[in-house]
Amino acid sequence: MSRAWTYGDNVNTDVLYPGRHLANIDPKYQAAHALEDLDPGFAKTVQAGDVVVGGKFFGCGSSREQAVTCLKYAGVPFVIAASFARIYYRNAINNGLPPLVSPEASAKIQSGDDVTVDLEAGLIRNRTRNETYRFEAFPEFLQRLLAAGGLIPYLRQQVLVKQ
């Protein structure tokens, strides 16, 4: 089962991944300190496949992409929110962690709900409540980036094509 971890509006990067941890860029270290100042229990109990659900303007503040990659390295495959702050949205796409914009899902999903995502169909399924929510479709170029797994694998493909 994929458990939902729900948070409120305007969750900022300082609580997602505090500045005191930025100097260490090791993936395991990032996962161990994910959401440390937002939800101290998160990093210890999150399971691979769990999803994070925020309110509006999720990820506001700093450009630090550890606020995205700490979740990815913790095994979180999707972040859902009513809306995302600009740089967080970019960082999520470029790091291959699809940021799903769905005010409905954000409002209805409760903490601990069993939630799965069908990326192709554009649907979020809440198996606990037997509900389905739509998320905003990605523009075509961003779909290609996400399909490649993020910007680095996308550019690697292009380098290989050129060679």
Binding site: E65, V68, R90, N91, N94, N95, F141, L145, G150, L155
Partner: peptide, 18 residues
């Protein structure tokens, strides 16, 4: 404007960004 580290790596490689 501000961007992330991964996309900056892309800029260093190509000079371009979305």
């Amino acid at each position: 404007t501000g961007i992330g580290a991964t996309e900056m790596a892309g800029v260093w490689a190509t000079g371009r960004l979305w």
